[in-house]
């Protein structure tokens, strides 16, 4: 992998400990512990119904986990030192030394996770603002910044110059992302009018307009043709390099997963069954067994059969 950030600085960004999510009797995520490193593209794979999207929904605040802790560090992993105290005092987030801060995502409402902890996400079934133009979609994503600049509407109603400057900057930023995803010509068309692949790219651009530290992509390559998923790979690698970003990725398309991921975690029935580099995962008999649906006691046999 071509690394923009050297391995030494790849400290922990996200620490998930003992995460459990129950829906009545169904345990969708079961005592999951997981770590994602800063600057990495970490993929989460697993058969259908393994709990991947539930895990995402817990991280991004759409579900409140039944048990467990999800901690995100801004700045460096030194911020995690403040974690025990913050947990004990019941805080949602706390500043550590310097520009560092640690966020306890399981305690925060969804919009605060996007706003303060700066975790952005896309959706498995695309959720764009279909009746708004591409540009408007990207301006809505900059709501936090713009709303503050508009003096929470009052300054904007009065037409303050500072708001006009902030809006011009927001439009520039939106235009930059539209150029990145190759849709600048369609800036003033409704998002619902875009073809499927372009909608997927726009959703990524919208997430990027919120200035995220961590970008969570839920099956970004689903429904894309081979050329489009190749372009998606290039786009993800590029934005990772240029924007000091870490990416968490759920994906079924192994072409995408194996090519761009630094690390891969495999879920099955809500449990993490393997974690490692793409080469390690590719060779792991438990992973193969999970995908083929073999009982646990026959895993060794399968391993032998596929030549491991």
């Amino acid at each position: 992998m071509a690394d923009g950030v050297s391995d030494a600085t790849r400290d922990d960004l996200l620490r998930v400990e003992n995460l459990t999510m129950r829906f009545g009797g169904l345990v969708a995520v079961d005592k999951l512990s997981f770590t994602a490193r800063r600057g990495d593209i970490t993929a989460i794979i697993g058969p259908n119904g393994a709990g991947k999207t539930t895990f995402f929904n817990c991280i991004t605040g759409f579900y409140k986990p039944t048990e467990g802790r999800i901690a995100l560090a801004h700045g460096s992993e030194a911020a995690f030192e403040a974690l025990p105290a913050a947990t004990f005092r019941g805080k949602q987030w706390t500043k550590a030394n310097g520009a560092c801060a640690v966020f306890l995502l399981e305690r925060m409402p969804g919009f605060e996770i996007a706003r303060l902890a700066r975790v952005a996400r896309t959706f498995q079934n695309i959720r764009l603002f279909a009746g708004m133009t591409l540009l408007e979609n990207l301006l809505v994503a900059q709501h936090t910044v713009l709303n503050a600049a508009s003096g929470y509407t009052i300054g904007g109603l009065l037409g303050l110059a500072s708001f006009k400057r902030a809006e011009a900057a927001a439009i520039d930023k939106a235009a930059y992302w539209l150029r990145e995803i190759g849709l600048v010509d369609r800036a003033d068309d409704p998002a619902g009018d875009l073809p499927y692949g372009a909608q997927r790219r726009l959703e990524i651009a919208r997430a990027m307009c919120t200035d995220p530290v961590l970008l969570c992509l839920d099956e970004p390559a689903a429904g894309l043709n081979p050329r489009e998923s190749h372009e998606l790979n290039a786009l993800l690698l590029k934005i990772r390099e240029e924007h000091a970003l870490s990416i968490l990725l759920i994906e079924h398309d192994m072409g995408v997963v194996m090519q761009i991921s630094d690390r891969i975690a495999v879920l099955d029935y809500g449990k993490k069954i393997a974690e490692g580099t793409p080469d390690e995962i590719r060779a792991d008999p438990r992973v193969i067994a999970a995908y083929l649906g073999v009982p646990d006691d026959e895993v060794e046999d399968v391993g032998a059969e596929v030549g491991l």
């Binding site: 952005a120 408007e136 809505v140 709501h143 307009c209």
Partner: peptide, 18 residues
């Protein structure tokens, strides 16, 4: 814009910090 975004998709609104 947040009002209109809310009309279009409430869940997506939350995901961008509204």
């Amino acid at each position: 814009r947040a009002w209109e975004a809310l009309r279009e998709d409430e869940i997506a609104c939350r995901s961008v910090g509204i």
